[in-house]
C-alpha cells in the first residue's frame, strides 16, 4: 500500500503528442494525457469526438499516426504482438457495445478470460465467475444466452467479464448506458470499491456528469481533437472556461459543435442564396 501511494504520482498511461486521422476526419491533433495510478480518471467529450478511439489507442487496437503512448512503462509502438497480449492480459476492457460472445452463455462469457489464460480447476472458475456475476447482480442469469439479455443486463455481464481477472487497469467505455438508477448506483459503487480495494487504475468514458463526478478523481474533457479541459470534477463543473461551461451546462451554442462538420445547411436543403 505504501509503495502504491508513493507511485501514485507517476502515470500508468502516458500519452504525448497524439495525432490521428480516420478517413478525412482529424480525430486527435496533439493530445497529451496522463492517467495516474490507483485513481479513477474520467474522459468526457461530445459524441463522436474520439473517446472510444482514444481507448483503442491506449490498448494497441489502433495505431496512431503520430505520438507516443506508454502503458505501465512500455511504449506500445515498440511492443510486438506477444508483448501487447501480455499487457492486455492485465487490462480489463468494457466495450461500448458490450461485445459478448454470442455463442456462449453468460457464465461462459465471464469465464472466457479465465479459461483462456489460466489452468484453473473448474470449481475455482465457477466460484470466481459467480462472485463477479453476483457483484453485478446477475448471478441468477448465469445460464442465459446473450441474446436473452436486455441491453443493460448485457452491459453488466460485460462488466463482470472485464473485471474477472482482477486487472491492473480497468477501462470502461460508457458503463452507465442502459442502466436503471438502481443498477447505475450499484455499478458506481462497484467501480469505486474495485478501485479502492484492489488498488487498480480505472478509466471511465461516460456522458453522465452526475455519475462521473461521484466517482472520478479527475476529468479530461476532449473536444475538437484537443484536451479542452482537465481537472477535478468540482473545478470543471464550476465552469471556468467556455468549453466546460457549454459542455456541462448542456448548451447547444458555444465552442463545442453539436453538429458533425457539414456543408451549409441552406445549401444542403437546396436553397440558393438568391431564392432564400
Amino acid at each position: 500500500m505504501n509503495a502504491d501511494s508513493a507511485s501514485s504520482t507517476d502515470a500508468l498511461v502516458r500519452i504525448r503528442g497524439l495525432r490521428t486521422r480516420l478517413g478525412a476526419k482529424v480525430i486527435f491533433d496533439g493530445v497529451d494525457l496522463d492517467i495516474p495510478r490507483g485513481r479513477i480518471t474520467a474522459i468526457m467529450g461530445p459524441s463522436g469526438t474520439g473517446k472510444t478511439t482514444l481507448l483503442r489507442h491506449m490498448t494497441g487496437q489502433l495505431v496512431p499516426d503520430a505520438g507516443e503512448i506508454v502503458v505501465d512503462g512500455q511504449n506500445l509502438a515498440q511492443l510486438d504482438r506477444n508483448g501487447l497480449f501480455d499487457l492486455r492480459e492485465r487490462i480489463g476492457y468494457l466495450f461500448q457495445n458490450s461485445a459478448l460472445l454470442t455463442d456462449f452463455s453468460v457464465f461462459e462469457n465471464v469465464a472466457f478470460p479465465l479459461r483462456q489464460h489460466a489452468r484453473l480447476p473448474e470449481e475455482l472458475i465457477r466460484n470466481i465467475v459467480l462472485l463477479k456475476l453476483q457483484a453485478v447482480g446477475l448471478r441468477g442469469a448465469a445460464d442465459l444466452m446473450p441474446a436473452e439479455l436486455s441491453g443493460g443486463m448485457a452491459r453488466r455481464v460485460a462488466l463482470a467479464r472485464a473485471i474477472v481477472r482482477d486487472p491492473m487497469l480497468l477501462i470502461y467505455d460508457e458503463p452507465f448506458v442502459g442502466l436503471d438508477p438502481i443498477a447505475l448506483n450499484q455499478v458506481l459503487k462497484l467501480i469505486r470499491v474495485l478501485n479502492a480495494t484492489l488498488g487498480l487504475t480505472s478509466i471511465v468514458v461516460a456522458h453522465e456528469l452526475s455519475a462521473v463526478s461521484r466517482v472520478a478523481d479527475q476529468i479530461y474533457l476532449i473536444a475538437a481533437g484537443k484536451i479542452a479541459a482537465h481537472g477535478q470534477p468540482q473545478e470543471l463543473v464550476r465552469g471556468e472556461t467556455d468549453w466546460t461551461r457549454q459542455f456541462f451546462g448542456g448548451e447547444a451554442d458555444g465552442p463545442v459543435p453539436f453538429h458533425y462538420p457539414a456543408r451549409d445547411y441552406a445549401a444542403d436543403l437546396g436553397f440558393t442564396k438568391g431564392r432564400a
Partner: peptide, 8 residues
C-alpha cells in the same frame, strides 16, 4: 476486438 482485448 473483444477477444483481442482479452489477449486471445
Amino acid at each position: 476486438a473483444a477477444m483481442e482485448m482479452m489477449a486471445v
